[in-house]
Amino acid sequence: MSKIEVIIIEDDTRIAEINSRFTKKVEGFEVLAIATTGEQAKELLEFIQPQLVLLDVYLPDILGTELVKYIRQHHPDIDIIMITASSEVDIVSQSLRNGVSDYIVKPVTFERFKSSLENYRTKLEKFKINDTLSAVDIQSLWSNVKAEESVSEDPSPKGIDPLTLNKIVKYLATINELGITAETLSKESGVSRSTARRYLEYLISQKKVYADLVYGNVGRPERRYFRTDL
């Protein structure tokens, strides 16, 4: 994939230079120019058609949100990432409504900057190599989560096997309002008592079951587990 061409629009020359250095450190990006005013930015965009603009909100002659509208009208194929200290609801909501790819709040760390650009690059790559996208791919376009991370990430904590968990959940669906003990679950599901208790306690954390001490006629109370949907 060829390098992604970038224009930086930032009135503070020191910050503009930092953003330029950050951009050059991320693989696959090239800074074409820096504009310090809205008018200068408009002139550059007439001659240079970058794929991406890094845009500040507070420029000396125009608000960045107004420049976003101008770019959307005159250069709809250019993507925009806002980099600004502004946290006003009106600014953020306007940016969102006008299709800004990301919104980075100053002061900017390199890790946050790098993550934003890499997510943007991943999205472009998906468009270039696919005719259709999976549900995971589509979700990642808006969530800024890389699809491969979404697929490979194991949502279960350490010590919880999804297959064993599914087996236990299916069995629990058959129990009545009297509940079940870890010992009974162990016998019925074929797992050890300690494993049964570990999975039951995990399901408590997921609010699928709850536990209570039940006192019998003789002996100490036993810990019983009940489905939350009963």
Rank of each mutant, 00 (worst) to 15 (best):
A135K: 14
T13D: 05
A182I: 10
V26P: 10
I83K: 03
G64R: 06
E30R: 07
S150F: 04
K207Q: 15
Y120D: 10
K25Q: 14
L178Y: 09
K3S: 08
D56G: 02
D61H: 12
I7P: 09
E46V: 09
E153M: 04
I78H: 07
T23K: 05
V169D: 07
M1Q: 15
T23N: 09
E201Q: 15
R72L: 02
G190D: 00
I175Y: 00
L178I: 04
I62A: 09
P76G: 11
T195P: 04
S156H: 13
P162Q: 10
H74R: 14
K207F: 09
I129F: 01
N144G: 02
Y225A: 14
A173I: 06
I15L: 09
T195E: 05
S20F: 00
I8W: 01
Q40G: 00
Q94K: 15
I104A: 04
S86H: 10
N144E: 04
M82N: 04
T174I: 03
E39M: 01
L59W: 04
D77N: 10
K187H: 08
A173E: 14
G219T: 01
I78C: 07
A182M: 08
K3C: 03
H75L: 15
S189R: 05
S93G: 01
G159T: 00
K170H: 13
L59A: 13
V6A: 09
S194A: 11
T122Q: 10
K208T: 08
S205W: 02
F127M: 14
P50A: 03
E148H: 15
F226S: 01
L67E: 03
Q49I: 10
R121E: 07
Y120C: 15
D154Q: 15
D212W: 07
I34W: 04
P107T: 05
Q139C: 05
L59Y: 06
R112Q: 12
I9F: 09
S194Q: 06
V214G: 02
L45H: 03
E46R: 11
M82L: 08
S186N: 01
L172W: 02
T132V: 13
